[in-house]
Design a protein around this nucleic acid. Sequence first.
RNA 1: GGGGGGUUUCCCGAGCGGUCAAAGGGGUCAGACUGUAAAUCUGAUGGCUUCGCCUUCGCAGGUUCGAAUCCUGCACCCCCCA
Length: 431
Amino acid sequence: MNPIPFDIYADLKWRGLIYQSTDEKMQSWLNEKPRTVYVGFDPTADSLHIGSLLPLQTLRRFQLAGHRPVAIIGGATGMIGDPSGKSAERNLLSEDQLQANIEGMRQQMAAMLDFDCGENSAILVNNYDWMKSFSYIDFLRDVGKNFPVNVMLAKDSVKSRLGSDAGISYTEFSYMLLQAYDFVHLHQEYGCELQLGGSDQWGNVTAGIDLGRRMLSKQLYGLTLPLLTKADGSKMGKTETGTVWLSSDRTSPYELYQYWIRVDDADVSKCLKYLTDLERGEIEELDGLREAAAHQRDSQKRLAEEITRQIHGEEGLKAAKYATDVFFGAEINDCSERDLNAIFSDVPSQQVSKSLLEGDGLAVYDAFVQAGLCKSKGEARRLFAQGGLYVNNHRWADEDACIKKDHLVTPTTLVLRSGKKKYALLKFELE
RNA sequence: GGGGGGUUUCCCGAGCGGUCAAAGGGGUCAGACUGUAAAUCUGAUGGCUUCGCCUUCGCAGGUUCGAAUCCUGCACCCCCCA
């Protein structure tokens, strides 16, 4: 078997993923033999988010190309806080919090990287494991000695903070020493020779390379990726409701799918190149389709599919698509309680007594007020008059009709909708 | 300390004794259109037991058949003179 199935550098190059490289001969160096590559992740939350997707996906691509990926979770560095790209001092995380975060991230990485494929199986490490026992004196002697302060002061991440009112603490100032040492440690432990990172990590990456040369007399390499931004310059991965996470507990597969479906035409080609495994020909074909028939949104659909499948698997993608159909007005029939809860997991719901359905039943207007979709019955009346009142995705026809037991989609649930896609559930419970 | 102006429904802002639940704009909501985009167009926009009733126009009283509109007092804000 060919140890290098494809030219990773050329692949990254056409995808536009090479922002900066520390060595001109990077391409031949990578194609010479399998290398060990690492990327660091900040454990600031118990889940990765869209911002981590690009480095993670790139690491994965390195693995597919025969190289060995190492994902390092910054358990130690996360306790310090990286000043790169931050305008203010970071809050320190507690050890418990970090432990929980690392556990969450570990599981998500397993969906992207193969941890069991022989020679180039992925490795996951936590720098806290080797940093925790490092004494301050030892660290200063072994590592600190190799860092000229004048060089440290010249780094952008430090310079920008020195000039600002926020200043920078000694702790954050020391951050780059820790990250640099990670590289050295990974080299000693796993023969790791290449560090990947976002373009904001350039300073930290080169610090690691310098340290490798000084401490080990070894040539290490670095590569930075562009930041994933939208055409208007804003960050990718934020919605009105907040960050888009990879964890299904925080962002449901449906929401994730929807996020990508809604990507702007101007950004979608870049996302396909950066984040999916689609080949050049396929992406160009999609670009062509988009130009010819933008309204079909083939690109967005494909993007959403690829990413959702990658993160949540075939099952997650299926659920997201089914939820999409239902959200956009498909019949809600013979739907199991479980499916319904999954589809509408992001939708507000209210519990009410099942006895309301006895006798004449529950007036539609009352149902909408109960569910919180209308502030008053007057508002519900208006909604009906304007044709925006739906029960189980059917436009309600008769304002005097009441909701009875047979309207329920599952033994307990009624799906109410105001307008095109504002949903709420009413759950009828026995008392 | 003296003089003047203001306080209106989610916001801005008309209204200055009945025809005022209160113009207009913004926002919001719905409908149409559409690519789950943007724009546009239409309608709605205090509550309710809705052909009617109830509560809103800084607060409290008063005058009137009737007040957001007039009078008195109070609170807060603004401007001018000292």
